[in-house]
Nucleic acid binder design. Structure first.
Lengths: 112, 112
DNA sequence: CACGTCCTATCGAATATCTATAGGAAAGCA
DNA sequence: TGCTTTCCTATAGATATTCGATAGGACGTG
């Protein structure tokens, strides 16, 4: 098993990046994306439906995701999302933005 | 000089932590806190007055800061803030929370 | 005096996330 | 069959935080 501590709330502004990253690992449907985010963050991030679906619709609206209806692995009606080319660019951009923020925060918190 | 690139917007939820950290380096007034945040983040974070003052009032309201009027180094009327004991605890708690987020984000973004 | 700078302050808008709630459809079970 | 649970999507309302714009008082300088 992996070590695991309590899930924590998202930092506002990171959900889009996490969704894009989750989909970069392969197309998936809504709840599957949430599960994948939980998995790659080692249980740290727990994305709730009320946050997830508005975000998915927003990202689709922006042209970063494309969606089509299909069937889940459990025979449920599910909307499958995948990254568009524009979405892959966004993933790169948002990743770099995150790196800059994390680097600056790290420096700031270590300041004496 | 230090390397420096464009300032970027704050991630929502990090301003309180940055203010607490800035004041852990010594008491200061509002604009002085903003300058110190810019300095310890190497010019990455540029806190605007419209964000700063509501945050200061909020933190004071929560009992994490104590304020008193004084004179700035330029003979201006300035309100000096310092951390309370409770504020120091908050700084520790928020720092740890940030570390957990940053660690989980790093892992998630490196996932394959 | 006129002007720029420093410092504090507030309002309105925009944005994102959470909680709570809902419903349909498939699966499991008595 | 009938009942319950699980899976998947969806929305409304509440909350919180930051930004942009704007304001005004006080000091220093030319």
């Amino acid at each position: 098993m992996t070590e695991r501590s309590e899930p924590i709330d998202l930092l506002q502004g990171t959900l889009d990046l996490l969704i894009l990253k989750a989909l970069a690992l392969g197309p998936n449907h809504g709840l599957g994306i949430a599960r994948r985010i939980e998995q790659i963050s080692r249980g740290t991030f727990n994305v709730k439906p009320g946050s997830l679906f508005p975000a998915l619709h927003r990202l689709e609206q922006d042209g970063w995701l494309a969606a089509e209806w299909g069937e889940s692995e459990n025979n449920r009606r599910a909307k499958y999302y995948q990254l568009t080319a524009s979405g892959r660019r966004q993933l790169r951009a948002k990743s770099e933005h995150w790196q800059r923020v994390a680097l600056a925060m790290g420096r700031a918190l270590r300041a004496t």
